[in-house]
Design a protein around this nucleic acid. Structure first.
Lengths: 208, 208
DNA sequence: GCAAATTAATGATTTATTCAAG
DNA sequence: CTTGAATAAATCATTAATTTGC
């Protein structure tokens, strides 16, 4: 709220940035004049996806025949093996795997078909949420007995990980580090940020 | 739901996995009996946290005088400059920056103090949400006039990025790829998954 | 003045909801 | 209509402000 002075000239520092110059006069100067260069095209910076629509699945989908991974594949198409394993893990009590676990799972599942970490992550999120819905529907639908978890079933080995409940331990927070990558218009694949991240993390020497 | 056979022996495949064996017993060291090998310690695998509390800010805060980044730093502690710039961008209409943008912003803000991409990401999420709350409170609090955005102000350059509203363009979905990393017990720092990810991504050649 | 105690802000995660591919 | 993907809302947890008693 206070500082705004240095705002000026902020982007000029690094020539490596695509949006170099004096633009970024975020406020004030509309004035229909020279918006070509001076305009800075903040719009495209802010929302690069607004212009070109997607709607494509006609021409760019044909380049890669189908051999690899999911067919024309925008999204992950899990194989039976993958689903089976995931469900097994779920039944074993796993709910929100951490990075290491996701990594391992992804590595394993990768043997049965192409898959990424985020697919595993999403799967667990969705599955958890949908099992919960289903359970809620059931508990409301057929009578009451609201404490009956519909899918305890199997997995009763010695692991006493809660199966039907999620909210349990008081300290649930983890601490994750991500690397974003957008797959849009003209996207890169997996942006490293490599060393940066490495030097960033020793900060929090311990989780919480 | 169907497949369960291969469940057994699933983790034995890859010796490269760190949790191959029985180590990784971060918590629950009590119980002297025989849960050592046969137990497989699935529990610790499933929920490695929940044991050790943090509560530290008394002795580990003094090692690094204060020079670098946030003091004993578990979480990002933004500097005035960083906040200022972020707010500026927010006011410019930026709401949910994509990977590329986060990257650039992070690079810039890194000049004023340690920061990661996820901090930027979170900041925008939180700020957006909290501005929304605030606005809702205000609109409810002082009279009506429910269509008055309290902070249109500035930013009227040629970029017609919406300032006061969020829900707008029909196609909002992006497609991000992450690399998770948990910082817990004995955590790793930034797990690559490097080549893997690279070969994974060409799948979705374009967002949506 | 100064720490412990309390409160206010806000960074970080999780959960709920929504969108859209197939 | 199923479900992968993404976003928004709710929640948790730290850190900084601040208050308070000495």
């Amino acid at each position: 709220m206070k500082v705004h002075q240095f705002a000026r000239g902020f982007w000029e520092h690094e020539p490596s940035l695509t949006l170099g110059c004096k633009r970024l006069r975020p406020l004030a100067p509309k004035l229909a004049n020279s918006d070509s260069v001076a305009a800075f095209d903040l719009k495209s910076f802010i929302r690069p996806e607004s212009g070109p629509r997607k709607l494509g699945c006609s021409d760019d989908k044909r380049d890669s025949p189908q051999v690899e991974t999911h067919p024309g594949g925008t999204r992950w198409n899990p194989t039976q093996e993958q689903i089976g394993i995931l469900e097994m893990l779920y039944k074993s009590g796993m709910r929100t795997p951490n990075a290491q676990q996701i990594e391992q799972i992804t590595a394993q599942l990768g043997k049965y078909g192409k898959i990424e970490g985020k697919n595993v992550f999403y799967w667990f999120q969705n599955h958890k949420a949908r099992e919960r819905q289903k359970q809620k529907r059931n508990s409301l639908g057929l009578g009451h007995c609201p404490r009956t978890p519909t899918s305890i079933t199997t997995i009763t080995l010695d692991t006493r990980v809660e199966v039907g409940r999620e909210e349990d331990s008081p300290n649930k927070r983890k601490c994750k580090s991500w690397t974003f990558e957008t797959v849009e218009e003209n996207n890169r694949y997996y942006r490293e940020e490599g060393d940066k991240t490495l030097e960033l993390f020793p900060l929090h020497p311990e989780g919480r």
